[in-house]
Structure formats: structure tokens, C-alpha cells
Design a protein around this nucleic acid. Structure first.
Lengths: 179, 179
DNA sequence: TGATCCATGTAACAGGTTACATGATTGT
DNA sequence: ACAATCATGTAACCTGTTACATGGATCA
């Protein structure tokens, strides 16, 4: 169970609604943890029932009422305990690499096209991370605490996306464009 | 459902037992798809019931009988169809990056220690991939078909592990060794 | 007035983990 | 004799996905 931890971590900075979280999980946090909105709402309910979160209905002008969740002291404790415990290894699941492995039953040009298509997503991600870094942390040497951690995770994102792009380029040189 | 595809892809080259697969999933294939032995045995049974695999009990000298699975024609078709369909995006879940995000509630030195520990695993993986590349594909220019695909997925592994190591080094320079 | 975004959920199902269970063989 | 490795599985549980459902607000 670690989506709950990702949610708690995301809410440390400031209270957010389930909808906000879902969007965040499509952006910055989404690099190292994915979740759909359904999952998020479910997990929010669980976390609130454990008193790790508190939800407050913040009425806003005319729009439907959003529920803003913030982390309780118990939630902070819980997260801190988890963070101190040893980490498992990273999980990666990538269709395209399985397809590489099965190249004998597919067309190489088809695989090449899929890689090229995905390359676009990774490029977009990289741009997002780079912009966020430039905007939020123009001066990395002065960072401490929360900012430092988020800077580091963005750097990891940049490195990952860059290596993916490099690999895609390597693959597209090797794989034929037409069969 | 894509563990099934990873299993089919792994069995394309040569028939393997569930036990063999579990070991492979700890090594080369494990880079882009993880699975425990329980999951694998379950999936093998399902795939056999769908006639995508055929299991043959290959008696071997004295040892307990292993069941060797090989892909049927229907299985190859199924895999080829999946490989031709568009790919979803890669899934990454990494505890350590969530912990980075939650640095405000943890000790930076503790996080640093966790990163250093995990760095070892990634280093070991990288060595494995490098050795496999040197042994199996000393001459990448001549590759085609199956070999080419496996070469490419190993290259992706090398790039990923390298970028992780670089990031870990960056993080260890920034994070204090003691609080 | 119809499309799109905001915002929150439920239900059914598929995928994956952990704990438990068994028993033979090989090496020390 | 004991531990480690080979080899296969079951059962309970947790996690995650897909499809469905609702309804207001904004914009063309």
C-alpha cells in the first residue's frame, strides 16, 4: 500500500481536492506514481476514515463544492514512519520493451512507429519537468527541506525522460522504417 | 492483462518451466516486467487453458518433473496482435521518489542512506546487463529479428540503470550525510 | 443547445502480493 | 543431519482498471 503514501506526500504542501490530486498525478507526481481519479477518491475516503486526513468542504463561488483534504498529525506520523522504513525496489512496466523482446513475431517498422509515438510523450514530459525546474528552483544550491526533495524528484524525472529519448533515437536508427 | 504477453514473449525463444520463468523475471525480463512465481504459475495455467501455451512434462534424470511450456500457433497469433496494437505508457512506481517528495517529514540523512543502498542494486543490474550485452551481442551491427529486439531492450536497461546511478550520485552530493 | 470541463462517486472485475503448504534433491 | 535449492501450487487479501453514473458551469 503506497498510493496512500503518495497522496499524503502530495497533500503535505497544501490541501487539495480529489480532482486536484488526479491532475497532479497526471503531472509532476505522476512520474513516479500513477493513479486514476477513482482510485484516488477511494484512497482519500480510506485515509480519512483512519484519521490521517481531514476533509473540509470549501465552498467556492457558485461552483460545485469541492472537498479539500489536509494531512492530520497522525497522518504526518504515519508518513514519517513509512519514509524511515527501508524501500522496496522500483517497479517498471513497459509494453514497448516487451514488444522489443517479441520482435520475431511483429513488424520492425510497426515497433519503430510505436517507439516514435511514445517518444513524443516522453519529450512532452521532459519539457514539463524542465519548465518546472526553471520556474521553481532557479537556484538549486540554496534549497533545503521540502523544496530540496521536490527538486531531486524532478531531477530524477529529467534524467529518466532524457535516457528514454536517447534510447528511442538509438532504436530508430537501428530499426528499419519500412519492412 | 500484460503479464501474459511478457510470458509469451519470454517463451518464444525456447520452452521454459514456471520456475525458469520466475528466475528470468528476476533477471533480464525483470527490468521491464516484474512478477512473482505464484503469479507466473497462475498465468501459465490460464494461458494453457486458452491454448496459447502447451505444457509438456519433460522427465529429467531423477529430479522432480518440470513442466516445460511452449507457445502454440494460436499463442503466437495472440502475441502478434497485441504487439501490433498501440502501447500504453510506461508505469513507474518508485518509493524513493515519493520519499523525496515527503522530505519535510523525514531525515535527509536517512533518505540519503536509502538511496545509497538502492544504488547498489542498480549497479548490480547494470553489470548484469553489460555482461549479457558483451557476451550475446558483441557485434550489434549484424543483428536482426529476435536478437535485435533483445539487444534493444538490454540497451534500454543499461540506459535506465545508468541514469539512476547518475541521479543517486547527484542526490548524495546534495543531501547531508548526517543531520 | 451542445460540447467540454469541473467534480465526485459506485460496482464489477482483473491484476498482483503475502502467507502458507508440500516435497524432492543436492551439497556440507 | 541440516540447510539450501529445485519445483509447484492454494487461499486470502489488497490494489488497480474499466465501465457506468450524475450534475453543475462555462464557452462557442
Amino acid at each position: 500500500m503506497a498510493l496512500s503514501h503518495a497522496i499524503l506526500a502530495a497533500l503535505l504542501e497544501r490541501p487539495l481536492s480529489g480532482y486536484d490530486l488526479a491532475k497532479q498525478f497526471d503531472a509532476s507526481i505522476g512520474f513516479f506514481w500513477q493513479a486514476t481519479h477513482q482510485q484516488i477518491y477511494l484512497e482519500l475516503a480510506k485515509l480519512e476514515s483512519k484519521d490521517f486526513l481531514r476533509g473540509s468542504t470549501a465552498e467556492q463561488t457558485s461552483r460545485r463544492t469541492r472537498i479539500l483534504y489536509s494531512v492530520t498529525d497522525a497522518g504526518v506520523d504515519h508518513l514519517a514512519q513509512w519514509a524511515a522504513a527501508p524501500s522496496g525496489s522500483a517497479i517498471i512496466k513497459d509494453d514497448i520493451l516487451v514488444k522489443c523482446h517479441a520482435l520475431s513475431v511483429t513488424s520492425a517498422s510497426g515497433l519503430r512507429a510505436q517507439i516514435a509515438e511514445r517518444r513524443g510523450h516522453h519529450q512532452a514530459r521532459l519539457d514539463t519537468y524542465r519548465k518546472a525546474l526553471a520556474r521553481l528552483y532557479p537556484n538549486p544550491r540554496d534549497l533545503a527541506g521540502t523544496a530540496l526533495g521536490q527538486y531531486l524528484s524532478l531531477r530524477a524525472g529529467v534524467r529518466y525522460e532524457t535516457s528514454w529519448l536517447d534510447w528511442a533515437d538509438e532504436a530508430c536508427v537501428i530499426l528499419p522504417a519500412e519492412d
